[in-house]
Amino acid sequence: MEAGERKGILRFCPHRYVRSVLDIAPRELWERGFRGVVLDLDNTLVPWQKEEIEAEVANWIEELKRLGIRICLLSNSLRTGRSQRMAHRFGIKAVGWARKPARSGFRRALEALGTSPAETVIIGDQMFTDIFGGNRMGLYTIMVQPLHPHEFLYTRFISRPPERLLLWYFRRRGHLKEARV
């Protein structure tokens, strides 16, 4: 595991960048010593503000659980009912109104999982919330491409343009690893 707190502009750089959660091999996470996974909900597991989850993603979650990896949904949504319903459906934990990238939400997720930052992965689609917050906490960070272009207007028009620029910069500098995890 090469996690640990990142400094400077690298606080925004994920350890890995993949197309989808399905490109992350649960067995490899286990073999690398990760015992907890913090998952963003919107545009990481399901399209924005939806609850319908694809069968392949549901199977991926079940494989994490079969391996003994604990899972916690971490959502910035003020309406926590949806994340709680989804967590209940899969028998996993959920922390709503996380205020990512604030450390408090990540601390609550780690507490719910009973894991340390060094043995925990955050998987999300947003650099300035999921990845920045995870890197500040010393988690291993994996960024996925958003499932769908429909998202919160602030995210679409304010966050995504500089995110694309930083992804380009990290690729060019050799900081961004785009591979199966």
Rank of each mutant, 00 (worst) to 15 (best):
G138W: 00
A102M: 14
D125Q: 05
V46L: 04
E111T: 15
L165S: 06
H15E: 07
N43K: 08
V181I: 14
R70S: 11
R89H: 14
T44Q: 01
G124Q: 07
R32D: 10
E52T: 14
I24M: 08
T129L: 04
W48L: 01
R107Q: 09
L29G: 01
R70N: 11
A25Q: 13
P146Q: 03
R35K: 15
P101Q: 08
A3W: 11
M127F: 13
C13K: 00
K7M: 10
H88V: 07
A109C: 00
L153C: 04
D130E: 06
S83L: 03
L22W: 09
R171T: 11
E119S: 15
F157C: 03
I71L: 15
P47Q: 09
E31Y: 09
N59Q: 13
R6C: 02
F132C: 04
R32M: 10
E178C: 07
I142N: 00
A118W: 13
E28M: 13
K93Q: 11
F106D: 00
G134S: 06
L167Q: 10
L64V: 09
R171E: 09
R82V: 09
H150V: 15
P101H: 07
R35I: 06
L165D: 02
M127R: 08
L10C: 08
R160N: 07
K7N: 04
P47W: 12
K177P: 02
E63V: 09
V18Q: 07
T129I: 10
E178S: 05
I158S: 05
T155L: 11
E51Y: 12
A94Q: 02
G134H: 08
D40I: 01
S20F: 08
R11I: 06
T44Y: 05
R103M: 15
I61Q: 00
E163K: 06
G174I: 05
R172L: 12
Q145L: 12
G4H: 00
W97Y: 13
R103C: 11
E54K: 15
V21E: 04
R136K: 12
L110Y: 04
S20P: 11
I9N: 03
R89T: 06
I158K: 06
F106V: 05
G68E: 01
V95K: 01
A94E: 02
F128M: 14
L74C: 05
L41I: 12
T141Y: 05
T141I: 12
L41D: 03
A112L: 04
R164L: 12
W97P: 02
S77Y: 10
A94L: 03
M143P: 05
A118E: 12
L167T: 09
C13D: 01
R108V: 03
L67C: 06
